[in-house]
Design a protein around this nucleic acid. Structure first.
Lengths: 191, 191
DNA sequence: GGACGCATGTAATAGGTTACATGATTAC
DNA sequence: GTAATCATGTAACCTATTACATGCGTCC
């Protein structure tokens, strides 16, 4: 079993969904910490069904294509539950902006400022989006958010991490811009 | 050209290195935001050499195996410089702990607390490590850190991001533990 | 004798993205 | 007309990890 499998089970533990629904949710509610395209989802669903972790039923629709709706089985819930408690394997981090930052010394400061200004803006936008969801949740599901046995609490928890991540990212980008705005000292060339 | 290529060029822009040296640096100085194993590095170096971005020379050693030392060419420096200024493509985030967090509501709070306690500890340890490097840099290269044209500044900048990331991560883990320690409200089962 | 560091490679597999493929309905 | 949404799949490709493969020197 791999991580996409558990991502799908995690969604199906909350609601019965079609492959299409799952792919949409892997774009937004989960999308900010786990993503998958539909070409990964459909084969994975077939595997999960083969192992008895999900059940499939076809829903005939009028005016739009039929769909296959999946629901989690007790066996599926059991493997999901067992997996949750297992210590996560280190996901090797890969941040392209940090990779660029490592070589930023080669480039004129003005160029660098442009780069980080664009990134700061993009992350600030995402932060605002997350803050919006957060307020919505705090208004709508106030009680559920306090109970750790509620799926709303779990969603809220991931959202809180997203917010803290984006806040720190924006702050760092702004620090970078400030650092790249310092008057250049006498430049000493290497080599 | 892909990201590992630029990671290697970024390292070779600072020093001449062998494939072995590069693989070690992709474990630590760069390792916390970009990683690669030696099986990715050696073929990539051959590609870079083929395109004229690096030059290779064999260094004969006594008492240990000979090695191939690579140095960046002007053409290599040029592509690196051009790439740095380009806006980074969104690296799709994948955090296994967050994926587990999304399904934490299924699991007994005590199990969850164990999970986050272990993670908090691991991240706190990494944070302490980064703080150590930071102090070392602030003591040793104080002047260079202020000049954005210095490679030391660039290293420092990535380190600062690592520190802010780990700090936020630890704080979030602790918040999770606190949240999972609240007395359970009357549990309402879904479905 | 065995583990570890230096040193360089290849092969197999897993994971993930992009492209190919089809087709109806609705909104602009 | 043309783009977007709903809906499900396959194929090709790229990236990344793990395993296979070799061999000397040093330290315990």
């Amino acid at each position: 079993m791999n991580n996409i499998g558990f991502a799908l089970l995690g969604l199906l533990a909350r609601d019965d969904l079609s492959g299409y629904d799952l792919s949409r949710r892997l774009k937004m509610p989960l999308g900010f910490f786990w993503q998958a395209g539909h070409s990964q989802i459909y084969p994975e669903l077939a595997k999960l069904a083969g192992r008895g972790f999900v059940r499939e039923r076809t829903v005939v629709q009028a005016g739009r294509p039929n769909k296959k709706v999946y629901s989690i089985t007790p066996a599926g819930k059991a493997v999901l539950l067992a997996w949750v408690a297992l210590p996560p394997g280190r996901t090797p981090p890969r941040d392209e902006l940090l990779l660029k930052t490592y070589s930023i010394w080669l480039s004129p400061p003005a160029e660098g400022r442009k780069l980080f200004a664009a990134e700061a803006e993009a992350h600030a936008k995402r932060l605002a989006e997350y803050e919006g969801y957060r307020e919505q949740m705090e208004r709508g599901q106030k009680r559920a958010l306090r109970s750790s046995a509620s799926p709303h609490f779990a969603t809220y928890a991931t959202l809180m991490r997203g917010i803290s991540f984006e806040r720190a990212y924006v702050a760092w980008c702004r620090w970078m811009i400030k650092s790249l705005s310092r008057p250049a000292a006498r430049t000493r060339k290497r080599q």
